[in-house]
């Protein structure tokens, strides 16, 4: 059974912005798009470890603040000429609350 964790209200994340959720194995960035969808990705760019949560969110993409790599929030894939990928995790909005799947944390532990 899927086990969802209520992390915050949707308003706590700015539109076209992100906040981080701390986990035992580093931060996960929770993004909110202009269309009010939410996406959870690892908060480290595969290029030089840039904090993606600090990037500019546009459409369903984010641009890394360090060297402008662009990632799809939906797939975690680097866009354009850059190659690389960050992990994505299930996230959704219900009744104005942001929910992350509890299993993702355990999966993170297992993967490391």
């Amino acid at each position: 059974m899927t086990d969802w964790i209520d992390v915050s209200a949707l308003e706590d994340v700015p539109v076209r912005g992100a906040r981080v959720v701390k986990t035992a194995l580093g931060c996960v960035a929770v993004f909110r798009t202009g269309a009010d969808t939410v996406h959870a990705l690892d908060n480290a760019c595969p290029h030089k470890g840039g904090p993606l949560a600090e990037g500019i969110v546009h459409g369903t993409s984010v641009t890394c603040p360090l060297h402008n790599w662009v990632f799809s929030l939906e797939t975690g894939e680097a866009q354009g000429a850059d190659e690389g990928r960050v992990n994505t995790y299930p996230a959704r909005v219900e009744d104005g609350r942001i929910l992350l799947e509890a299993a993702f944390l355990r999966a993170r532990v297992a993967a490391e």
């Binding site: 964790i5 992390v7 915050s8 981080v20 959720v21 701390k22 035992a24 194995l25 944390l105 993170r108």
Partner: peptide, 15 residues
């Protein structure tokens, strides 16, 4: 508060 993490789930992972 906008400079702080949205949530701290460090303990959850220990389960």
């Amino acid at each position: 508060q906008s400079y702080q993490p949205l949530a701290n789930l460090s303990l959850e992972a220990a389960e």
